[in-house]
Design a protein around this nucleic acid. Structure first.
Lengths: 179, 179
DNA sequence: GTCTATAGGGGGATAGAC
DNA sequence: GTCTATCCCCCTATAGAC
């Protein structure tokens, strides 16, 4: 064992899971270490502080999501772009539910260390959705992008939390045709 | 001074404002007392614990919002119901930004003391939006209700945080015609 | 690179005067 | 009903052995 980076992965996974349930502040580094099956010292050796640990978790999650959305947009036919981006987003939530929840809880916080990084990614997501609207020949104002992005997040979270209720097709149809 | 309930109001206001900025866990009772201009003992005399204080703040906020949405729905003409409910929601955010932010940060937490109360109100909001869709003769599935509700929240928060960007009419138009 | 043990500070809660 | 003073636990972070 002790494959390169393996400890870091275990810690990041535990940190995501616990913060998804209890929030970042309410998650203790002791709990993260216990959940990851490592000693607390290892957490500090690998990440320096709790703050940097979560900054890294959020950064990784956001970057992965941004890449995924960008690729789905670039690969989509005009007329199908919003659908493609929304589907990519929903699949991302499904594959990384814990870190997604952590990001969601941070989305509207204004005074955190990772505030700027988060704001950048929010802008990125908005502009990807705006581009998708444009590619589909739909009005692409900031307000419209926010509306579609909001639908996508809310529908995605409903699916995640009450998974039995919404299948993927139904969810995407609701996002696309929110009116 | 010392009008009945005045201290409670000051404490609730301070608790809302601080938690909107830092989150509930990161807000200390000492800070709440200082911000409210009362002693910490008064917080405990009036609310018993930090947990009960925030349970009450959330409960009040949700009840007020529910009432507001319900009234706007009941008073709306068919065909104008979604617009009326969305507008009521946006105005509520504008009038109570702090407590709204606190609620938003809690919306997807699963293990909190006030979890059940929150889930009830979320269902209530969903069903109000579903009714509004129905009144307007639009498809009113749970997914569609979630999508409209999500648009409304996201657009509302964008307005609240970057107020210069979106006027009310533009915001409502985006929510109504999200596609 | 991971562990155990401990330091140090902050925060929730209570006691008791006024 | 509001205040001040204090308790004590828990949590972040560090030191130092292995």
């Amino acid at each position: 064992m002790a494959k390169r980076g393996e400890t870091r992965e275990k810690i990041l996974g535990a940190a995501a899971q616990l913060a998804a349930e209890h929030g970042i502040s309410a998650t203790a580094v002791d709990d993260i270490a216990a959940e990851a099956g490592v000693a607390k010292g290892s957490v500090y050796y690998n990440f320096g502080s709790k703050e940097r640990l979560y900054a890294e978790l959020l950064g990784e999650t956001l970057q992965r999501a941004g890449q995924r959305l960008r690729e789905s947009l670039d690969g989509a036919r005009p007329g199908d772009a919003v659908r493609a981006v929304a589907e990519a987003f929903l699949r991302g939530l499904q594959e990384h539910p814990s870190s997604s929840k952590v990001v969601a809880a941070e989305l509207f916080r204004l005074d955190r260390p990772w505030r700027e990084s988060l704001a950048e990614y929010r802008s990125l997501f908005f502009s990807i959705f705006a581009e998708a609207l444009e590619a589909d020949g739909r009005p692409a104002s900031p307000a419209n992008a926010a509306a579609v992005f909001g639908s996508t997040i809310m529908v995605g979270f409903e699916r995640m939390l009450f998974a039995d209720r919404l299948d993927l097709e139904e969810a995407i149809a609701a996002i696309e045709g929110a009116d």
